[in-house]
Structures are given as structure tokens and as C-alpha cells.
Design a binder for these strands. Sequence first.
DNA 1: CCGGAGATTAGACAAAGTCCAAATGGGTGT
DNA 2: ACACCCATTTGGACTTTGTCTAATCTCCGG
Lengths: 136, 136
Amino acid sequence: MPYTRDTLPGLLRSHDINPTHQRIEIAHALFSHQEHLSADQIMAIVNTNHSETSKATVYNTLNLFLEKHLIREVIVDPSKVFYDPNTRPHHHLYEVDSGKLSDIDAEHVHISGLPPLPEGMVTEGIDLIVRVRRRG
Amino acid sequence: MPYTRDTLPGLLRSHDINPTHQRIEIAHALFSHQEHLSADQIMAIVNTNHSETSKATVYNTLNLFLEKHLIREVIVDPSKVFYDPNTRPHHHLYEVDSGKLSDIDAEHVHISGLPPLPEGMVTEGIDLIVRVRRRG
DNA sequence: CCGGAGATTAGACAAAGTCCAAATGGGTGT
DNA sequence: ACACCCATTTGGACTTTGTCTAATCTCCGG
């Protein structure tokens, strides 16, 4: 757990994000859990004890974090997006039955033989998702 | 274009699908275009000229096709699922700005160094998505 | 203390997809 | 042709995720 509420403001600032209460709470939810969370899970976590952060703010903030490359979005389930505090290069393992999502470090994975990109295009990212299910 | 309305019933039967009017029309939309279409695009195509196929039927049918492995679903855009008539092994190139989705043949692509699967799990599929955008 | 830019909010709204009970329809046997 | 049956289709209400907007709040500099 490299991030506490104390170190988060600096992290946000280093990504050019004004660290407000709500933003720190949302960042804290993501970075302290180090998990893949959906927007509604984040809203639930942030609002557990007492204070209220609105749905609009949660979405605003997550989209801001995305823009500033503080987090990534992971699109594996058509019904909801997951947000990923890990921005180091990595891939994903998705357990179809349970919905569990985990990281695959990119370090040892090698992808070769991709065709050249269309003219004038640059790669924004390569998403590799291994979908697995329980044998049976 | 290997599929016409004449050959589609056989294709459906070979996948253990009872070929009804609506199912043939929906299959025709996908297989004659050989494109990645979303549910609402398919509904629009099927209903262009006159007859009506209801939203419920479109979704029922697409999910049936998925179950029977006649088509695949491609999850690249959080807002909608695309359906892919190409079930041969292949990957996808997604142009983020335009939403254009195209195939990358899997034949020459090689992925190595993936970690072993968790105990008792089998791979259902590996999705590789190259996200690109216009340079600028 | 004041003003203003940026942040937050509630709630209405939009879009994708699901659900259900009722109606339909296409075979099959007679 | 008829009746029956079961799969399929259907409209429409409903759910869920996410967006939009206009009003309010906050906080900082002067």
C-alpha cells in the first residue's frame, strides 16, 4: 500500500489535479484497495460512513483521473467499466463466472507479429484480456 | 460474401439453431455485411424496409447466437457491445476517435510468456485489442 | 470582506439491455 | 382442414450505467 491519505495530494498534484476532499477520497478508495473497482463500488466505499459524494462527482472525478492518466479503465464486462489504479504496463485475467479481474504483469509477456498501423495512426494502448472460466 | 439468405438456414441448423424468419434476417445483417455491428445497428438494418423485428427479439437472438458460438461479442466501447460474425481466431484494431473497429488476423500474431492459469481454470478466449488514434 | 473560478450537487434525462406475461405462428398428427 | 402444442416473438415496463444542466458552494487572492 504505497499510498495513504497523506501522500495522495502530492500524487494528484503531480498529475495536474487539484486535490479536493472528494478527489482524495475517491483516489484513496482506488489506491488503498489496489483493486479494480466500478463506479458504483467506488461510490459505495466513499459514502460508507457518513459524508456524501454525489454520483455526478464520482463520474466527473473518475473521468478527470482518466484524462490525466492517473488511472486506467478496463473494459471487460459490457455492463460496467472497471477503474484500475495500476498504470504500469500490464494485462488482465478475467474470470467470466465470478467477474473477478486480476492483473498479469506485462514484463514477461511478449506480443509479436502485429501488422503495421494504418497511416497516421499511433498506438494509444494494447489491451490483452485472458478470459477464463472454471473447468467443467 | 459466402452467405446468402439461401445458405443461412443451413448455417443456423449446423449450430443447432432453429432458423426462423427473424433469425435469418439478423444473421443476414451480420454475415452479408461482414462487419462489426451493434445491437441497435442490427435492429435498424433489419427494420429498414418494412417489417418489424422487436428489440427483445434482436437481443434474444444475438444472445442465442453467442451461446451457440455462431458469432462473438467484442467489448471495446463501454457504451455498447459489437457483434462479430467472424469466429476464426483474430484480434481487433479499434480507432478510438472514430469508433471504427477492424480485424487483425491472428495467424501471424504470437503471444508468449503468459503465466499459468489458476488451478481448475480453462481459457475461454484471449482478446487482444490495439487502440489507436490519429496522430496529432 | 468581496468576487470569481473551479468544484460539487440534485435531479432530470438518455441509452443499452433485461424481463415478463400475452399473443403469435409453424409443425405435427388426425 | 383442424386442433393442439410448444417455441418464438412481442410490446412495454423496468433497471442500470452514465451524462447533462443549472444552481449552489468553497476557497483563495486582493
